[in-house]
């Protein structure tokens, strides 16, 4: 469904990705891992076409993503949730969800069933939500686009343990009940082991390891993640 082959990308004169290769099949969960500053979020930006790849191939659902602008890539079914709980602050919770809505499985009722707190705060300004609720809103908004691929970039970063559990439970439910492909970036190896099928490890903007979660031994985790 999604494949990156030998992708490189730059921020101006500074090269951030050198050789990223990964593949994600329909219904699969892939963990993209690496220490801070190794290119995980940059890879997400490249997939979402917010940053142009300088070389390599990026394919999604049979389309060459390098030929498409960001909004067309999103319309193909890529639903990203970026780090930092980004929401449209001027809009209410409901408006944040509806502005992104596209026809499909995910609608207001299903989002409210997944995150009941969003239903309770439907008419509240998004800016008044707690950090965890804002993250739920960001995930809900991505789901309202009815994506084929959900990308979660540090979705639980900086959240209270109980809220993190709630979000992980929702992601597990998504995986179990919808079979949606998910690309997940997170620091919690324990949670990733529970949810992901495969992992790709990045170091200095390049893929250094890929395999199943079972084959990700403590030795490899220690070498590339410092865990």
């Amino acid at each position: 469904m999604l494949s990156l082959t030998g992708v490189s990308a730059c921020y101006g004169a500074s090269q951030a990705l050198f050789n990223v290769t990964l593949a994600l099949r329909e219904g699969e969960v892939l963990a993209l891992m690496g220490r801070n500053g190794m290119g995980k979020s940059t890879t997400v930006k490249v997939i979402c076409r917010l940053l142009a790849a300088r070389s390599g191939r990026i394919e999604f659902a049979g389309y060459d993503l390098r030929r498409l602008p960001a909004h067309k890539a999103a319309r193909l079914g890529i639903g990203p949730v970026f780090e930092g709980r980004r929401r449209f602050a001027n809009l209410t919770v409901g408006e944040n969800l509806l502005v992104a809505a596209r026809p499909g499985h995910w609608d207001r009722a299903r989002i409210e069933a997944l995150f009941p707190r969003l239903g309770e705060r439907f008419r509240q300004p998004a800016v008044s939500l707690s950090g965890g609720e804002q993250q739920m809103l960001a995930i809900g908004r991505a789901l309202m686009t009815n994506p084929r691929l959900l990308i979660l970039d540090e979705a639980t970063e900086g959240l209270a343990p109980l809220v993190r559990q709630e979000i992980w439970a929702a992601v597990a439910l998504l995986r179990r009940e919808t079979g949606m492909a998910i690309l997940v970036i997170d620091k919690s190896l324990r949670e990733l082991r529970r949810i992901a099928d495969h992992a790709v490890l990045l170091e200095r903007g390049a893929t250094v390891w890929s395999g199943t979660m079972e084959s990700l031994t403590p030795d490899i985790a220690d070498r590339y993640l410092g865990l």
Binding site: C48, R49, L50, P69, A70, H71, K72, A74, R75, I78, G79, P80, F82, R86, F88, A89, N90, L91, E95, L98, V99, A100, A101, R102, R141, A142, T145
Partner: peptide
Amino acid sequence: PFGLALDAARQAPERVETVG
């Protein structure tokens, strides 16, 4: 929905692109 999208595009054009 058009007005909401316009308002959202004023706040964060990149984010609007990522929702299509």
